[in-house]
Computed example of a mutant assay.
Amino acid sequence: MRFAKPSVSIAEQIALLRRRGMEVPDKAKAEHYLRHVSYYRLRAYWLPFEDTAEAPGDHKFRPGTSFDDALSLYVFDRQLRLHVMDAIERIEVSFRGAWAYHLAMKYGPHGYLDPALYDRADHYAKAMNGLLEEVERSRDTFIVHYRHKYDDPPQPPVWMTAEILSLGQLSKWFGNLKFRSDRQAISKDFGLDERVLVSIVHHLTYVRNICAHHGRLWNKQFIVTMTIPNSPVSLKLAMNPAEKRRLYNTLVAVGHLIEIIAPGTGWRWHLIELLNSCPLADPASMGLPNDWQHRPSWKID
């Protein structure tokens, strides 16, 4: 099938929205956001307001739908994305430190490079190739200094490596550790079983990428999910196992980790305020159970 849709001007976009039943109370405001955000990006936020159209392939909005409704959802999703990204950044920094510290103290500055520490040789080889590329590409002062001063071994010590690896790369180094005792020692800092932490870090890498690329988060159905933990009990009870592909369980896991890493930040409190600030954001689309604020993890003193 050949793509034959024409390009549509902003004025024509507004006329199209009105023809389909959307109210545009402030045309200048709509023009501004269609120019600076784009019709295509905003479209994801007015989809929840669409109704079944009479003509096949056409679109129709429910009576009373306003351009401001879609805009409110867009702003809410942006604020939610930034709030989640702030927490993942803190989690990533903490995880880097925990991984590097354990391996440095147990195996020495360069012990992490020993293939015998890893379960799958093919995964180790791929991770090493990625590390070599990062070291070669890095212009960080500490990496440049190491390369100029040392040549044996050519790779930096683990605490430097931790600073240049992405969260995705780091999760693979961590997940491929052969000995459960190593994974468990690192996971202990976060109050989780190693199997659960491997899963959560892998999932948060995926969520971080959505946030970093300004993707829609609030009603996203995730492809990469995470393991529901059995402990601590308060964390397990807060989860919603019926909605493993929705955002809610991610928020529970992030809230647990941020309370350990940065207690007193009020991250969960601000999240609750944010979730309650946008009535248009359907709680079910985020996987929120009806009693979520009464579950142990969300009871803020």
Rank of each mutant, 00 (worst) to 15 (best):
residue 176 N to V: 07
residue 263 P to K: 01
residue 141 T to D: 13
residue 222 F to W: 08
residue 154 P to A: 13
residue 122 D to L: 11
residue 277 S to T: 08
residue 72 S to Y: 00
residue 100 A to V: 03
residue 134 E to S: 14
residue 20 R to W: 05
residue 209 N to E: 06
residue 103 L to K: 06
residue 64 G to L: 01
residue 8 V to R: 12
residue 226 M to L: 09
residue 35 R to K: 15
residue 242 A to H: 13
residue 267 W to R: 09
residue 125 A to K: 10
residue 33 Y to F: 15
residue 118 Y to W: 02
residue 252 V to D: 04
residue 297 S to G: 04
residue 39 Y to N: 10
residue 15 A to P: 03
residue 50 E to A: 02
residue 92 E to H: 08
residue 139 R to W: 01
residue 242 A to G: 04
residue 191 G to D: 03
residue 177 L to W: 03
residue 230 N to E: 14
residue 196 V to K: 03
residue 299 K to A: 08
residue 183 R to N: 10
residue 256 H to R: 10
residue 188 K to L: 03
residue 92 E to T: 10
residue 87 A to S: 12
residue 191 G to N: 04
residue 300 I to M: 13
residue 230 N to A: 05
residue 151 D to L: 03
residue 162 A to F: 02
residue 202 H to Y: 11
residue 232 P to T: 01
residue 62 R to F: 04
residue 102 H to G: 02
residue 30 A to Y: 06
residue 189 D to M: 00
residue 45 Y to W: 09
residue 162 A to I: 04
residue 200 I to M: 12
residue 54 E to K: 12
residue 229 P to E: 08
residue 75 V to N: 03
residue 112 Y to I: 04
residue 229 P to D: 09
residue 42 L to G: 07
residue 213 H to L: 01
residue 301 D to M: 05
residue 280 L to M: 07
residue 71 L to M: 15
residue 46 W to S: 05
residue 254 V to R: 14
residue 79 Q to T: 01
residue 210 I to C: 09
residue 98 A to R: 13
residue 5 K to N: 10
residue 209 N to A: 04
residue 54 E to T: 13
residue 152 D to Q: 14
residue 117 L to G: 07
residue 126 K to A: 14
residue 2 R to N: 09
residue 50 E to F: 01
residue 186 I to V: 14
residue 52 T to H: 12
residue 267 W to H: 10
residue 85 M to F: 15
residue 66 S to I: 07
residue 274 L to M: 10
residue 26 D to Y: 14
residue 142 F to T: 12
residue 279 P to A: 06
residue 241 P to H: 06
